[in-house]
């Protein structure tokens, strides 16, 4: 019952907002009421209308033009995530186990992480061309640091008692890696997974937006170029649906792999 109520209110928020948008952009305020001329609260030229946006989105899916662009963006997102996460895990592990290396690179890691990634986009376009790889590179620079910091923390913050116990049980360095450090780091990586996947997508879309010939970011940029507000909103709608689907998949994977982790819902017997 509680879940149903929650869903009801969640949908209610969307309905109310869309209704306001619809009324504001389709009902004309008659002349002489608030101003000399008749006007819309939300001028359709600037705000489009909900039905136009839905209709455009529907048509894009029905005719199939959007699938190609979605596929490109998805590919870039996945590549950025996989490469960034793999790099983050490896380097994070390495740094956590080698204190000297971590100390030497510490200021450079901080510097690189503080750099706004958008300024790198033109450089990547220059180096890697306008194809998917410049977008993947941008996504990687975002994903890498999130995963890196989490894995680094995860390996460093293994409980000393658990570690001592593992050693007393006779584990070698390699077995410690496999049975203690790796699962611990993995749990920290998963806690950052939602953020990491989100950033992979941001990298892909921003990269496309700044220079490309395909992808959702490209579609939105094209629409903006010709003042096609409906196209822009339609692109954002597709992007939002896309994000929710990806996030649902991530949650499913997380629930599958992190069964051992205590949740607030599970009670102790």
């Amino acid at each position: 019952m509680k879940r149903a109520r929650l869903l009801f209110f969640q949908i209610l928020v969307a309905v109310v907002l869309i209704a306001l948008w619809h009324v504001g952009s389709t009902v004309k305020v008659p002349a002489g009421f608030l101003s000399q001329k008749a006007f819309f609260f939300l001028d359709p030229f600037f705000f489009s209308t909900p039905f136009a946006v839905f209709e455009r989105t529907w048509r894009d899916f029905a005719t199939g033009v959007i699938w190609f662009h979605l596929g490109i963006t998805l590919l870039e997102t996945l590549l950025a995530f996989v490469i960034g996460a793999a790099g983050g895990v490896l380097i994070g592990f390495w740094f956590a186990r080698q204190h000297v290396v971590a100390a030497v690179f510490d200021p450079y890691v901080k510097m690189a992480n503080a750099l706004p990634r958008v300024v790198l986009a033109p450089i990547f376009a220059l180096w890697l061309g306008l194809g998917i790889w410049s977008k993947v590179a941008l996504g990687v620079t975002l994903v890498f640091f999130i995963v890196f910091f989490n894995v680094y923390q995860g390996v460093k913050e293994v409980s000393p008692t658990v570690l001592a116990n593992a050693r007393m049980l006779g584990m070698s360095e390699r077995q410690l890696m496999r049975h203690v450090y790796w699962p611990s780091a993995l749990s920290w990586m998963f806690s950052s997974l939602h953020t990491a996947v989100g950033f992979a997508l941001v990298g892909a879309v921003v990269g496309e937006y700044l220079g490309s010939a395909a992808g959702l970011g490209y579609r939105i940029h094209q629409a903006e170029g010709v003042f096609d507000v409906t196209g822009v909103f339609s692109g954002m709608l597709v992007l939002a649906i896309f994000v929710i689907i990806i996030d649902t998949c991530v949650t499913a994977i997380e629930n599958r792999l992190m069964v051992w982790r205590p949740t607030s819902a599970s009670s102790q017997t």
Binding site: T161, N165, A166, M168, H179, P183, S184, S187, W260
Partner: peptide, 20 residues
């Protein structure tokens, strides 16, 4: 080095939380 002939039951939680 480590005492290979000893088993140690710790005061704090020492089980591997990711294992059944």
């Amino acid at each position: 080095g480590l005492n290979r002939r000893a088993g140690y039951l710790f005061q704090a939680e020492a089980l591997f939380p990711w294992k059944t």
